Simulated assay, not measured.
Amino acid sequence: MQTESAFPAVEPPFGRDLIESILPHRDPFLWVSRVVACDPGASIVAELDVDESLALFQGHFPAHPVLPGVIIMEALAQAASISILLGRSSQGAIGFLTGIDGAKFRRQVVPGDVLRLEATIVKSSSRLCVAETTALVNGEVCATATQKYVLAAPERA
């Protein structure tokens, strides 16, 4: 038996308009440009266009701009949250990142890169979700981590 989704019909690939109907994040802190593939509640492949005009590159680092690892982790969390929220039809819910285990950074991400964001949901209970995440550029692994999220209903967020 299929439940009716709280979201508009969502069929990948899709861009920012649909992403903004799922996630509560907005610029300058929305770190997913498009969703390439998604199995709601199970996995997602998304992308982030690393725009050279991002203000953070003025300070990180002016002579050698690099996307901060914390932003890569946030982008992965946002991508995983899209899958989780679609899987639960949880429009308006907010996923709070509560843990990052085993994070490894293997390659720098620089302006002009397209960062591929992959997440597989490995645990999903009523409030806690866990995802295995990987960020890549041109097939090269940039970062990996196990991430944990707690979901808050819209009225409790």
Rank of each mutant, 00 (worst) to 15 (best):
L54T: 00
Q91Y: 11
L128N: 09
D113I: 05
R88C: 10
D113S: 02
R107E: 11
L67Y: 13
L54H: 06
S53P: 00
L67P: 02
L76R: 06
I94T: 08
L54M: 08
S89W: 12
A93H: 10
A63Y: 11
G99W: 09
G92N: 06
L76S: 08
Q91P: 00
A55R: 01
A119Y: 14
A63V: 02
A93V: 02
L67K: 07
V114D: 04
F96C: 01
L115I: 05
A103P: 00
L115F: 12
L56E: 06
L76Q: 07
Q78W: 13
E118V: 05
V110N: 06
G87T: 06
L86T: 03
A79Y: 10
Q108H: 09
L54F: 12
Q58P: 00
E118W: 13
A93M: 06
S53N: 01
A80Q: 04
A75T: 05
H60T: 01
A77H: 06
G87Q: 10
V122D: 11
F57I: 00
G99D: 05
I71Y: 15
R127A: 15
S125P: 03
E74M: 07
G87R: 08
S124M: 12
G112C: 10
E74F: 14
P65C: 11
E52F: 15
G99P: 00
L54P: 00
T120K: 09
V66Y: 15
L56D: 05
R116Y: 12
A63F: 13
G112T: 03
A119G: 08
Q91T: 02
F57W: 02
A77T: 03
R106K: 07
P111I: 13
R107A: 14
V110S: 07
L54V: 01
Q108M: 13
L54C: 02
